[in-house]
C-alpha cells in the first residue's frame, strides 16, 4: 500500500494532471482520486484492452497510450503499464503532448526501477 501511495504522490506531482486512476487490467481499482471511479475504471480497462486489440488488427507494435479529447480540454488519457492501466484527467489549460511526455517519463522510471530491483 505504501508503494501505491508513493506512486499516487508522484503522479499528482506531474504538471497538468488534475485527477488520476490506477487500475489492474481487469478493472480492479488500486488507487485513485477521481469522483467517479467505477465508471472510469470500466472505461480505462475496456478501452485499454481494446487498444491492444486494435494493435494486433493493424499489425503495429507497442501501444503507447490513448486520448479522449474533449471540448472542455480536460482530456482523459490512458497509459498501459504491464498488467495495469493508468488513467489521467488533465487540466483544461495543460498542453496534452507535454502531459503525455511527463507521464511517460514517470512510467519509464518505474519500469527501469522494477527492472533494476529484479
Amino acid at each position: 500500500m505504501a508503494n501505491l501511495e508513493a506512486f499516487a504522490q508522484r503522479v499528482l506531482k506531474i504538471e497538468g494532471v488534475e485527477q488520476f486512476i490506477f487500475i489492474r487490467n481487469d478493472g480492479h481499482i488500486l488507487i485513485h482520486n477521481v469522483e467517479n471511479p467505477q465508471s472510469l475504471s470500466a472505461l480505462a480497462a475496456f478501452t485499454g484492452l481494446s487498444g491492444e486489440a486494435i494493435r494486433t488488427v493493424i499489425g503495429t507494435t507497442y501501444f503507447k497510450h490513448l486520448s479522449f479529447s474533449r471540448h472542455s480540454k480536460e482530456n482523459f488519457l490512458i497509459f498501459p503499464l504491464d498488467n495495469y492501466f493508468l488513467g489521467i484527467l488533465q487540466h483544461a489549460e495543460a498542453y496534452t503532448p507535454d502531459v503525455v511526455q511527463r507521464v511517460n517519463r514517470l512510467i519509464q522510471a518505474i519500469t527501469r526501477s522494477k527492472a533494476a530491483s529484479g
Binding site: 467517479n36 465508471s39 472510469l40 470500466a42 472505461l43 475496456f46 478501452t47 487498444g51 486494435i54 494493435r55 493493424i58 503495429t60 507494435t61 507497442y62 501501444f63 503507447k64 497510450h65 490513448l66 486520448s67 479522449f68 479529447s69 474533449r70 471540448h71 472542455s72 482523459f76
Partner: peptide, 19 residues
C-alpha cells in the same frame, strides 16, 4: 464508451510505436 462518460467528447486517438 467514452461518450457515456464524457458528453463533450470530440475525438479518440490511439498512439502506437509506428502509427
Amino acid at each position: 464508451s467514452g461518450r457515456s462518460n464524457f458528453s463533450d467528447l470530440s475525438e479518440l486517438s490511439l498512439y502506437y510505436e509506428e502509427s
